[in-house]
């Protein structure tokens, strides 16, 4: 990873991060968080910032297919990895069946937790296409919905799995 030092002595790093299939090469500071890289540098604002401490799961993205909280990953540490954000779940304007299922089951109230919920659920269904209700609840246990709309979220994920 190449480092650049400006006139005031601040060091910056050249990172290449793959998001939703595209490689983005950008210059970041060491303290740039992945969530800010995604939202501010790439303008992909579907990924939400909630607690910013890795507790709420709003900022969940998939890192090499696995859900992680992008608020506690450094952009320099993300260099060379592949990420999927909620913008990368739909294919060519068509919502993923999981997203359709969230709509059909009214699994969205205020919507703030939804992108994170979709990412955790997507990772689950990729790994385990026929999960039990218990497995669904376990998989989204790192995603907090403060509207407490869990019942319909679980229903939506199970319905997407059974299609």
């Amino acid at each position: 990873m190449e480092a650049l030092v400006d006139n005031s002595g601040v060091k910056r790093y050249l990172v290449t991060i793959n998001v939703n299939g595209d490689d983005y090469t950008r210059i970041v500071k060491a303290n740039t968080l992945l969530v800010n890289f995604i939202r501010d540098e790439l303008d992909l604002t579907g990924t939400k910032k909630g607690c910013e401490l890795g507790d709420c799961g709003s900022c969940t993205v998939l890192m090499d297919g696995k859900p992680v909280n992008s608020c506690i990953v450094l952009a320099v540490e993300a260099d060379g990895h592949k990420f999927t954000t909620v913008e990368g779940v739909a294919q060519n304007e068509n919502l993923d069946r999981l997203q359709e299922s969230f709509v059909d089951n009214a699994a969205v109230q205020c919507g703030y937790c939804t992108p994170g919920m979709i990412m955790s659920a997507k990772a689950l269904l990729t790994r385990n296409p026929q999960p039990t209700e218990e497995e669904v609840r376990e998989a989204i246990s790192g995603n907090l919905c403060r509207c407490t709309g869990y019942v319909n979220i679980v229903k939506a994920i199970l319905a997407a799995a059974s299609e």
Binding site: G57, K66, P67, V68, N69, S120, E138, S141, G142
Partner: peptide, 9 residues
């Protein structure tokens, strides 16, 4: 421990 997102990192 923790939750899935934390366990992955």
């Amino acid at each position: 421990m923790a939750n899935n997102q934390i366990r992955n990192v």
